[in-house]
Design a protein around this nucleic acid. Sequence first.
DNA 1: TGATGAGGCGCC
DNA 2: AAAGGGCGCCTCATCA
Length: 562
Amino acid sequence: MLVAVLPEGAGGLLRPLADDGTPADPERRVADLVEAVRRIEATDRPRWLWASTADVYPRLVRAGVRIERCYDLELAEALVLGAEGRWGQPRSLASASARLAGLPVPPDPPSRAALPPGEFQESLFELETASGSPAELVDVHAAQRTRVAGLAELPSAHSFPARAGSMRTLIAAESAGALVAAEMGLAGLPWRADVHDALLRELLGAPSPVGGPPARLVELNTRLNVALGRRVHPDSPAELLRAFARVGIVLRSTRRWELQHVDHPAVPILLEYKELYRLWVAHGWSWLEQWVTGGRFRAEYIPGGVVSGRWATRGGGALQIPKVVRKAVVADPGWTLVVADAGQLEPRVLAAVSADRRLARAAAEGDLYAALAAEAFEGDRAKAKLALLGAMYGQTGGDAAPALAALRRFYPTAWDLVEEAARTGETGGLVRTWLGRTCPPPSVTWRDGFDQPGEGVEADTRGGARGRARGRFTRNFVIQGTAAEWALVLLARLRAALSGMRAELVFFQHDEVVVHCPLDEAAEVARAVRAAGDEARRLLFGDTEVRFPLDVSVVERYSDAK
DNA sequence: TGATGAGGCGCC
DNA sequence: AAAGGGCGCCTCATCA
């Protein structure tokens, strides 16, 4: 059973539908949407059909209402458009409805995600009156079902064919992910501001009372001035290049890896400055003030925000929290953190999707690289890792060349899969993930101003640096995107397993998940994470012998994981 | 003055 | 150890 929901102030319109999406009961208006959903969820557990989870669900969660399943029409629209070769067309309910009716398609309204961070937070408290009608929801949903069923017949110049069944799975997983994202964003990551502050003082020294650089940075800057024989602003690359040139050192850039090869007393000082400077500007006191409230860091998660299907976040740099700062992530008293990290996820995904028999056998082991090394790289684990990463990221020459040759010889089926994805991209084609997420067309991934979709695109794409860049992108897309799908399914299964417990999902980062739970639930949560990983493997890859082992730690502090 | 791009670096 | 893929976000430099 489905129930279509259209919010309207504090109330809304509800329309029950049969499983096939056809209306089952007349539409009705409720004055209190939260209470209506609470009641219907308790008795019927329907799949809720709405235009956008991000617009509707947060207010339900804040009122203490959680739902089990939903169908996010806009996320689904984006996936189906991509599979149909119409990537990037407007996806809102209004746009999809207009497209269906053959009317001019309005652009998507600016999404919440486009708001400045502060306003984004506030917007979550607004009562949204969505545009559109329940009839439009019902019609667009029905049309999506038909379009999904037709996907199997689409011409397939892609890594994986578009299959109706897997697209349904993908839409369900994407929708479940949106529920997790909303809940996790509201729950927040436990964050001890006092611990963070102590850490900053230890590394950076005392903060400046007027907002300038802290003591340690001032000191390092002074020492740098001395070492270079003149005053410099270390945050200005141009100035640094000039200063180094003046002491006889010509640099192409001031990147760390380039500086590291330079023998000059200023270099270690500058490297230390850069590291601490970054900590100060990106995760210093102002970050703490802006993003941590009530003992929680509340990130804004955007499911499907990355073209590969990975999540994005906005504000607070939630996916880039430096390891050193993770000391401030501390469980509440009497609670603990269960941290689960999928090791070697992407090479395992390659083994599973390619069904390369030898690679799959290696991926049945706990340490895939070691197994590979024993078989094909004379026991050299580092070389095995280099080869596999090089094949997935598109490295061609350099030190990796011999390793790549060995990989190609021993694992030809896996090799062919990534090579085929790369060739497809180089010649202007599209690739898909295992469940059917389609990569954007070349016109979207080229960001140079003069690239226009249409004439000349294919010719420009073939050969040349740009074509090779596109090939590296599509080569990686099929692996990274499929890994994101495995993680998404794990997340959805884990969320289901945790319902009814006090445990809460509080963080998710590509292949790693953190659950905050009472101490006495930790063992069960750890079991649930492993079970969710197994279910994700089975759902995606059936009876593959590839394993997706999870490193699970039960810790008080995030920094103590692993 | 505000917008944009480049340089740089944190995470996976 | 770096370099291949994906991001967000900070700064400076430049341009309208």
